[in-house]
């Protein structure tokens, strides 16, 4: 990555301008043209470095609940279990990790019944020995900003 690309990535992670032409504002701060700024961000997106620029919504403020779920899955079944979990609507993150609970996913659902149904489904999958729900009791940081 070029230094200017790093600077742009750091810039768009914070203080995105609420202006009709926000990329012109960012471009001016970095002494490049609006066109070049947009082109670079498009290229960083195409390369998969920048996922997207978006409003990050607090879904819990409009009636949804997010939960973290940790599963203990037999190593030879983990790909199949992960694929089945990805088929549940509202599963946004799903990671294989080191540890006794080795598959971790986040589920956003509209009501408790939907959440419990999804947990029951996970418990029924072949190779799953344990499913634990980790409700968030207090949030200390939701940052998402990383200097590249």
């Amino acid at each position: 990555m070029q230094p200017i690309e790093r600077k742009l990535l750091n810039a768009v992670q914070r203080d995105f301008p609420l202006e009709k032409r926000p990329f012109a504002v960012i471009a001016k701060r970095h002494h490049i043209t609006e066109k070049r700024c947009i082109e670079m961000l498009r290229r960083l997106t195409a390369q998969g470095i920048l996922r997207e620029i978006r409003p990050v919504i607090s879904w819990n403020r409009v009636g949804f609940t997010g939960i973290l779920i940790g599963l203990a899955v037999a190593p030879d079944r983990v790909d199949e279990v992960a694929a089945a979990i990805n088929g549940i609507p509202g599963v946004t993150h799903n990671y294989l990790r080191e540890g006794r609970l080795n598959l971790w996913c986040t589920l956003t659902c509209e009501n408790d019944a939907d959440g419990q149904r999804s947990l029951t489904f996970m418990r029924s999958l072949d190779g799953v020995a344990d499913v634990k729900e980790f409700a968030s009791e207090k949030t200390y940081k939701i940052g998402l900003v990383l200097d590249v």
Binding site: L9, L18, P55, S58, R61
Partner: peptide, 23 residues
């Protein structure tokens, strides 16, 4: 957007990185 940012329904308007690809 400004309204929802002020009430916190929208937490941020920002670029989201793909961690591993960003280094």
């Amino acid at each position: 957007l400004r309204h929802y940012l002020s009430t916190g329904v929208i937490r941020r308007l920002a670029g989201v990185l793909k961690h591993d690809r960003a280094g």
